[in-house]
Design a protein around this nucleic acid. Structure first.
Lengths: 232, 232
DNA sequence: CCAAAAGTGTTGCCGTTACACCCATGT
DNA sequence: ACATGGGTGTAACGGCAACACTTTTGG
């Protein structure tokens, strides 16, 4: 029964997987806890207080940790195992937040206490298992709590939603080339895609609008810039 | 920040959408609160205490409300709007539990305080909006909290996972006919499916094993019984 | 003229759909 | 015999993958 008279009360936190794609690889913002109370790297998070909704708390953490205001985010799942936090019982609602890489690189500096870690997945498709995190040099990072498992779930969710939702576009700017979209898809799926097929499937979804402008290119033909056409 | 020293603590509950399919229609177990503190019908739920994990709490509620021990369940999403419960702040982790209809009909009796309500969805596919709940006579039920919204999300999730997961089989017995599976799919999707196509797609997934036994039938050819072949 | 990446056309395969048909059973 | 629902065959359609090809730029 849900008796409010003498309820058990628990600490509820949100944990954010702030994700981006840099040079065709997934990256996620990790922090090392300032007062080394729990060893290892962890996703940024914050406790949910009585006056704030979940989304509001997420927004607040996002701005505090990255300065980014308008990132797209969505809920992933909630983790409530009794011993997931060695310091005490914490129910954690995990969120995914997406951001183009330069927005993040401007706001967070890699250092001893924070970094944009590389997020690898050994398994293909939507199989199980935790994610593997490494630093810029490719050295494995030891993760606090169950955060490696959460990040594994995250990648599976991303892969599943990739081609029927708009998540991929959360990792891009307002205007982008078709190649940019393909790079993001390949980074998330972990394998290369055929260019003509990808192109046609993407355009056939009827989501994009050609702008007529072209991205400045190097020694090759410039690519046309597209936008999401927003239908309300 | 996640300070454990003086944390805000909140009431955390699990709410269960205990779902079944009866006569080709989705049904969900709803309760009317005994001490009419909140008007309307609600999903069964329970407060999460300090010693129990989320899944454990779900299992406990499930057995308490239905007597069913081995139902398949999975997490849906977490709802934490500040005013979703008029009595105070409650974070609610919604779960989906699946059960063959006769297991439920045996354990719960329709009455003034509990019923297997009809779950309708006006919208097709995976569009938005709350679910519509009615009683056996087709009269709309007024729902407590945000439970109509949660049940809307539930149906969308079910529809999305229907043909790449095993959820449909949670609504069936160990042995079933192909027609049974089709009925479940049609109930969830809300529209009829072509028999030959459904049959072939289902068998081509390579999940089923023909038993060689046949279901007792009426005035027509008996249908073969199939089982899930469990691959570990 | 060459390299590099954008972008298109063509072909063949394969899964799905629609429709017609056969099979087994009770009345 | 026939009504009823289980189960199968077949041909047309449409989407997708592979591959070869053309286009546009900088050097």
């Amino acid at each position: 029964m849900r008796s409010i008279s003498s309820p058990t009360r628990l600490t509820v936190a949100v944990d954010l997987a702030i994700l981006t794609v840099i040079d065709g690889a997934m990256r996620v913002l990790l922090l090392r806890r300032p007062d080394d109370d729990v060893p290892g790297w962890a996703m940024p998070g914050g406790v949910v207080d009585a006056e704030r909704g979940l989304d509001e708390t997420v927004q607040q953490v996002l701005v505090a940790k990255t300065g980014v205001r308008d990132a797209h985010f969505e809920q992933l799942a909630t983790y409530g195992a009794v011993n997931r936090d060695p310091r005490g019982r914490v129910i954690s609602v995990a969120y995914l937040a997406l951001c183009p890489h330069d927005r993040l690189e401007g706001a967070v500096a890699a250092g001893a206490d924070q970094m944009l870690a590389h997020l690898h997945t050994t398994w293909p498709g939507e199989q199980g298992g935790p994610a593997r995190l490494t630093d810029a040099a490719g050295q494995p990072l030891s993760m606090a709590f169950d955060h490696a498992d959460i990040l594994g779930d995250l990648v599976r969710r991303l892969r599943g939603k990739l081609d029927y939702s708009l998540i991929a576009f959360g990792l891009l700017h307002r205007r982008f080339t078709l190649r940019d979209v393909q790079t993001v898809h390949e980074a998330i799926l972990g394998h290369p895609l055929a260019k003509p097929a990808f192109r046609r499937k993407l355009l056939s979804r009827g989501l994009l609008k050609a702008t007529g402008d072209y991205a400045p290119a190097g020694a090759h033909r410039p690519a046309e810039l597209y936008e999401l056409l927003e239908e309300k």
